[in-house]
Amino acid sequence: MQKEIIIAGFGGQGVLFGGQVLAYAAMDTGKDVTWIPSYGPEMRGGTANCTVVIADHEIGSPLVKNPPLAIALNLPSFDKYEETLAPGGTLIVNQSMVDRPAKRSDIHAIFVPCNEIAEEIGDKKLMNMVAMGALLSALPEVTLKDVEKALEGHLPARHKHLLPKNYEALKRGFESAQKEWDKVPA
């Protein structure tokens, strides 16, 4: 088993942390994992992305050209990764930040209004966790429970009071994506 995931968005949207949470969840369940950021000037604003590879063997390349899974938190990321996604792959799109439908018909584009859901929960910064929850609907190798445990285990103590809202964000994202999957013809 090997799965590659690219998470992309504006700097400040929690792209890198979202990927780290996923990496922790994979590690804690005994899988091999790599997390690699784009570490260029985009760290200081602009677009950012990270690639997470999860496998049950020694991971070779930490980067991937045509990922089977990706999250696009903004329009530039949607434009970029809709093009490179592997055929049959799943793209989680933050509907709150894009103004167009998918162009490709050979991929699954799952639209989730991450910003609105996060604001409903009461903290717009939870948007990345909503998207992570949505991603898990297409990544059976990592469960919601695994990610919850990873957050609990690795979130700094000063942020522990935020855990319930993070769990809610994950769950709401997962459910929202699930509704989109239900619309996909069998």
């Binding site: 780290q20 590690m27 994992v33 997390w35 690699i36 950021p37 570490y39 991971i59």
Partner: peptide, 10 residues
């Protein structure tokens, strides 16, 4: 190379 320096792994 920079990617080993910047990468996270268990």
């Amino acid at each position: 190379d920079g990617s080993v320096g910047q990468m996270m792994e268990p």
